[in-house]
C-alpha cells in the first residue's frame, strides 16, 4: 500500500505531531520503505488465526474496588510545566 504525503500529514495531525512540509516529504520516503517491508505479511495466509494481543494466556486479576492511593497532587505537579492553584495551565480552550 503506497503512502502519500497526505497520509503522513494526516497521521501527524492524528498524533498531534507538528511536521513541516519538508519533514513530511522525508517521512513519506522512510515510512514508505518501512510499510513496503511490512507488506510482506500480506503474503501469509492467516485465515482463521485468532489475533494474539498478549503473549501469555492469562486472565487479568481484578483487585478489590477500594481506595488505595493517597492524594499526592502537589508532588505530582512539581514536574508540570505550568500549574496554578493545583490546576494544570493550558492555552484558553473556551472563549
Amino acid at each position: 500500500m503506497a503512502l502519500e504525503h497526505a497520509d503522513v500529514q494526516r497521521a501527524a495531525h492524528l498524533a498531534r505531531l507538528g511536521l513541516t512540509d519538508d519533514e513530511a516529504a522525508r517521512y513519506v520516503d522512510d515510512l514508505g520503505r518501512i510499510l513496503e517491508m511490512v507488506d510482506m505479511l500480506q503474503a501469509l495466509d492467516t485465515e482463521g488465526v485468532a489475533p494474539l494481543a498478549h503473549p501469555l494466556d492469562v486472565t487479568q486479576r481484578l483487585r478489590a474496588d477500594e481506595v488505595t492511593e493517597s492524594d499526592q497532587r502537589s508532588r505530582f505537579q512539581r514536574c508540570a510545566p505550568a500549574v496554578e492553584n493545583g490546576l494544570y495551565l493550558v492555552p484558553r480552550v473556551v472563549e
Binding site: 500500500m1 503512502l3 497521521a11 498524533a15 505531531l17 517521512y27 515510512l31 505479511l41 489475533p51
Partner: peptide
C-alpha cells in the same frame, strides 16, 4: 517520530485490519 507516525497510520481508519490485526495473527 517515525514510529509514532507508522503506528498512528497503521491504526487509523481503513488500515487497521490490513496491518494491526494481520500482525497480531502472525504473532500467534
Amino acid at each position: 517520530k517515525r514510529r509514532i507516525l507508522i503506528g498512528t497510520h497503521t491504526l487509523s481508519e481503513g488500515f487497521f485490519d490490513a496491518y494491526y490485526k494481520k500482525a497480531q495473527q502472525v504473532r500467534r
